[in-house]
Amino acid sequence: MTNPFSRRGRVLALGAVAALALGACSGGVTGGDEDATGDEGPITLGMLAPFSGSEAAFGPYMENGAQMAIDEINEAGGVLGRDLELVTEDDACDATSATAAANKLITEGIVASVGGYCSGATLPTLPIFAQAGVPMVIPAANSNQLVDADEEGIFLINGTGDQQAQAALAWAEKQGVQRLALVDDNTDYSADLAAAVAEQAAETDIEIVLEESVTAGESDYSANVNSIISADPDMIYWTGYYQEGGLIASQLASAGYDGELLVADGTVDAQFAEIAGAAGEGVEGTFTQTPDMLEGAGDWIAEYEELYGEGPGPYSTQAYDAVRVVAEAIEQAGSTESDAVIEAIKAIDGLELFSGPLKFTEEGTLAEGGFAIVEVGPEGDFVLLDDLQG
């Protein structure tokens, strides 16, 4: 059986899809669509990601993953006989910057967006892309507010805040936690996730003993640390990003905290361990599985390393898959027309992604969230601890 994560397996699959879709264009449901047969030149996809600011490490991961998918698809014949191309803009994880960058992408003539890392920066771009008729397949941002916005053509291929909250509580219950403290950084993503955990905890035997918010960008969190320790939790769930998370972990350890520390996906990065130092050892996190955690993904990792000189970081795989989802939808629609592509995305059932076979709910979220538990390994990076399947 062909390994779906090998380059040969991926190119064969893409070639087969292209052949089927191109055959359909000569007749049948999508036959005769002028966009499928008359347009020439590349099909342009847009990506908003942080290339500056506190989350700048993630922008290149996402761009590289998306470009890797585009190169493979183009090598296999493109989409509707046309090459894909990627245009990126820096949103700096800032709402104002993201709004300007989204409008700039619209002027570039993109047919779909495959970006979105910070939820707070992604949220204000939803109406911009919707009004322009640009479907969004969002690889990283996963705040419930993105779903609640109820804009047409928005799809999340990262698990939602609700799904991540479920994973966090499942792990806490598995560890016998009775007293849980929630700490967020006041960003949309972080506060939304903490609120989801608090709401879902009401259906468990876990008591939420503290809901604490910190101010992002500070260096001294001693007041917050004192509040946390005074609440006497068995476990702390930090729902913010790695910069503050590393500092808080270090300062908690210095203050004598010896309970468990669980972090959310915004902190799952090797830089967390660099900031936390010895306090990062054994810290656990909720995260979707990365290539190194998946059987058979070695070829993909090696190819990424050869192309970019480093290993694939967080959200490189999701960005890779976002491109594949859009390409599949355009092929199946036989067109780049917005409504047709959106309906084709909705109809996808079983496209093999890194997270598993793809199917979207009516809200545009994954039918299965795919969150697992990871922990800081001996090299400082996060490794799989429990897939929560048992």
Score class of each variant (00 low, 15 high):
residue 209 V to L: 01
residue 202 A to D: 12
residue 213 S to Q: 13
residue 210 L to S: 10
residue 213 S to P: 09
residue 208 I to T: 05
residue 177 V to Q: 07
residue 213 S to W: 06
residue 183 V to Q: 13
residue 217 G to M: 11
residue 208 I to R: 02
residue 180 L to C: 03
residue 185 D to T: 05
residue 190 S to R: 02
residue 205 D to T: 01
residue 193 L to G: 06
residue 188 D to H: 06
residue 217 G to A: 11
residue 218 E to H: 06
residue 211 E to I: 04
residue 217 G to C: 08
residue 208 I to F: 01
residue 208 I to V: 15
residue 223 A to I: 05
residue 192 D to I: 10
residue 200 Q to R: 15
residue 218 E to M: 11
residue 210 L to W: 06
residue 216 A to N: 08
residue 191 A to Y: 14
residue 205 D to N: 03
residue 198 A to H: 01
residue 208 I to N: 03
residue 220 D to I: 12
residue 195 A to I: 04
residue 190 S to T: 02
residue 207 E to T: 07
residue 183 V to N: 13
residue 195 A to Q: 12
residue 177 V to S: 08
residue 200 Q to K: 15
residue 184 D to L: 00
residue 183 V to W: 11
residue 189 Y to D: 09
residue 214 V to T: 13
residue 200 Q to L: 14
residue 197 V to L: 04
residue 199 E to I: 10
residue 209 V to W: 00
residue 192 D to V: 07
residue 185 D to V: 02
residue 210 L to F: 04
residue 177 V to A: 08
residue 215 T to D: 13
residue 183 V to F: 08
residue 220 D to H: 14
residue 218 E to I: 04
residue 181 A to W: 06
residue 180 L to T: 05
residue 182 L to T: 04
residue 217 G to N: 09
residue 182 L to C: 03
residue 206 I to N: 05
residue 194 A to Y: 03
residue 201 A to D: 01
residue 192 D to K: 07
residue 212 E to P: 06
residue 212 E to C: 11
residue 213 S to D: 13
residue 207 E to K: 05
residue 209 V to F: 00
residue 185 D to H: 03
residue 201 A to R: 00
residue 188 D to Q: 10
residue 205 D to R: 01
residue 205 D to M: 01
residue 198 A to K: 08
residue 210 L to T: 08
residue 219 S to G: 14
residue 191 A to K: 15
residue 222 S to H: 11
residue 193 L to W: 00
residue 212 E to S: 14
residue 205 D to E: 12
residue 194 A to K: 14
residue 210 L to R: 14
residue 184 D to N: 07
residue 219 S to K: 08
residue 185 D to R: 06
residue 220 D to Y: 13
residue 179 R to N: 15
residue 204 T to M: 05
residue 220 D to F: 12
residue 182 L to D: 04
residue 205 D to F: 00
residue 181 A to P: 11
residue 216 A to D: 12
residue 205 D to H: 01
residue 214 V to F: 15
residue 213 S to H: 08
residue 193 L to I: 11
residue 195 A to L: 09
residue 197 V to M: 04
residue 199 E to C: 07
residue 210 L to I: 10
residue 207 E to D: 11
residue 214 V to C: 05
residue 213 S to K: 13
residue 182 L to P: 02
residue 213 S to C: 06
residue 212 E to V: 09
residue 218 E to P: 04
residue 188 D to T: 15
residue 178 Q to D: 13
residue 213 S to N: 12
residue 197 V to W: 00
residue 187 T to E: 12
residue 206 I to Q: 05
residue 189 Y to A: 11
residue 203 E to L: 06
residue 215 T to L: 14
residue 195 A to H: 11
residue 200 Q to I: 11
residue 211 E to P: 02
residue 208 I to L: 03
residue 193 L to R: 05
residue 188 D to K: 07
residue 183 V to H: 05
residue 181 A to E: 10
residue 178 Q to Y: 06
residue 211 E to Y: 02
residue 188 D to C: 09
residue 189 Y to L: 09
residue 222 S to I: 11
residue 192 D to W: 02
residue 177 V to L: 06
residue 195 A to G: 14
residue 201 A to T: 00
residue 200 Q to W: 10
residue 219 S to L: 15
residue 219 S to F: 13
